[in-house]
Amino acid sequence: MSEVTETLVRDYKITRRSANLDINWASAQIVKNLEKHEKRDLLAWLLTQSERVYQRAFQANQFSAAQGALKLIYDMTIKEPEKKKDSRWHGNYKH
């Protein structure tokens, strides 16, 4: 992010704040435009890469890295997602 910010400031002569706002807008647009099948493709790619990390770490006797890769695979596939809290209530409000 900082390299992109520096490039925008240097090449387009805009302020750092404006560059950061533009970067945040672009990131939000990318996330908003992900379709369901693209998310599945991305998940499959992440799982494949995590499995490779696990296998290589296990072969190199880097067991903590292998365990981290397995936890990531578990979090992406089996673990139930946390339920979102009702955003209307916040702070110390008692339900």
Rank of each mutant, 00 (worst) to 15 (best):
E51K: 05
L72A: 11
A57L: 08
T48I: 14
K85C: 05
L46Y: 12
S27P: 00
A26T: 10
S50Y: 08
M1G: 11
S18F: 10
S18N: 11
K84E: 04
T15E: 03
V53H: 00
Q29A: 14
H95P: 11
T48A: 11
A60H: 05
K39F: 02
S2K: 12
L47N: 02
R88Q: 01
Y93S: 08
Y93C: 04
W45Y: 10
D86A: 05
I23W: 00
K36H: 08
V4C: 08
A26W: 08
E38N: 07
G91P: 02
L34K: 07
T77M: 09
E35K: 14
Q59G: 09
F63R: 14
S87Y: 06
L43N: 02
A26C: 10
I78D: 00
D22V: 11
M1T: 15
E82I: 12
E51A: 09
W89L: 06
I78T: 06
D11S: 03
K85W: 12
T7S: 11
E51W: 06
E3C: 06
D41F: 10
Y93H: 10
V4L: 13
D75T: 04
L21P: 03
R56Q: 15
N24S: 13
M76V: 10
I78V: 11
Y54D: 00
E3M: 08
L21V: 12
H37W: 14
R52W: 07
V9P: 00
L34C: 04
K83G: 03
L43K: 06
L43F: 03
Y74G: 00
Y12N: 02
K85N: 04
R52I: 15
T15W: 01
L21K: 12
E38R: 12
I78S: 01
W25F: 11
L47W: 05
A28V: 06
E38M: 12
